[in-house]
């Protein structure tokens, strides 16, 4: 029964949503709105689950003193402080901390975001540029015909996509655009069709109860 009810619900709602898409009647629209509201409510539980599992995972790491447990303390303390600061609407106004003033420009949440999260997150991604330059130098070698083709395409797209490319020759951006609009487009479209057909097949398997992995608990 524990598995039968979710499977029946999945079948009913799956078929309903497919049929509903093609029926523009007001009753169908109203039913669709009700379903959407339910989905919104249910999706909030994902947030609760996420927070719960984050706390549980890091608490266990701290308890067991697993390697890197210090970082778990940082994670939990940061999460608690950020949540409290947001919930209590802590603001920094005229050199004083005031509460329940929302999460606008002067909020401590925004100050944290601008002065901690933005620099840390940006630094992490900025470092990627250096690794990518080094990786491109090492990996882009004309070892095979395919690699040579990739190398030539990358060469023209990289040069054509920056102003220095058009300064070298106005034809370069045009050629880069052609690579993106013709060979890239053809390949992307093929991939997209593949993904879409795979998505339809998987969805049908889930609706019809053939694919049951989403129920969890193995066989």
């Amino acid at each position: 029964m524990q598995r039968q009810i979710p499977l029946i619900l999945c079948l009913i709602f799956g078929i309903f949503m497919i049929v509903q898409f093609f029926v523009p009647h007001p009753y169908s629209q109203r039913a669709y709105e009700v379903v959407l509201r339910w989905v919104r409510i249910i999706s909030i539980f994902a947030l609760v689950l996420g927070v719960g599992s984050l706390v549980l995972y890091h608490s266990n790491k701290i308890k067991r003193k697993v390697s890197g447990w210090g970082f778990s303390i940082v994670t939990l303390v940061s999460a608690i402080i950020t949540t409290l600061v947001g919930l209590l609407g802590v603001n920094w106004l005229d050199g004083k901390l005031v509460f329940f003033k929302g999460i606008g420009k002067s909020s401590v949440l925004q100050i944290f975001f601008q002065n901690i999260f933005v620099p840390v997150n940006s630094t992490m991604f900025a470092m990627l540029a250096f690794y990518m330059a080094s990786a491109a130098y090492r990996a882009f070698r004309a070892r095979t015909k395919e690699a040579t083709l990739l190398l030539i395409a990358a060469f023209f797209v990289m040069l054509g996509m920056v102003p220095i490319g058009s300064a070298i020759s106005p034809r370069l951006p045009e050629f880069a655009e052609w690579i993106l609009s013709v060979p890239n487009l053809a390949a992307k479209r093929g991939i997209l069709f593949g993904i879409a057909l795979g998505g339809i097949a998987t969805s049908l398997k889930i609706i019809l109860g053939i694919e049951r992995g989403w129920l969890g608990g193995g066989k």
Partner: peptide
């Protein structure tokens, strides 16, 4: 960004000359 792209391309070309 323009100069960074140019540098990466020069490096790729140099790397390939050496490799070949």
């Amino acid at each position: 960004q323009s100069l960074a792209h140019l540098l990466i391309l020069i490096l790729i070309v140099l790397g390939n000359i050496g490799y070949l």
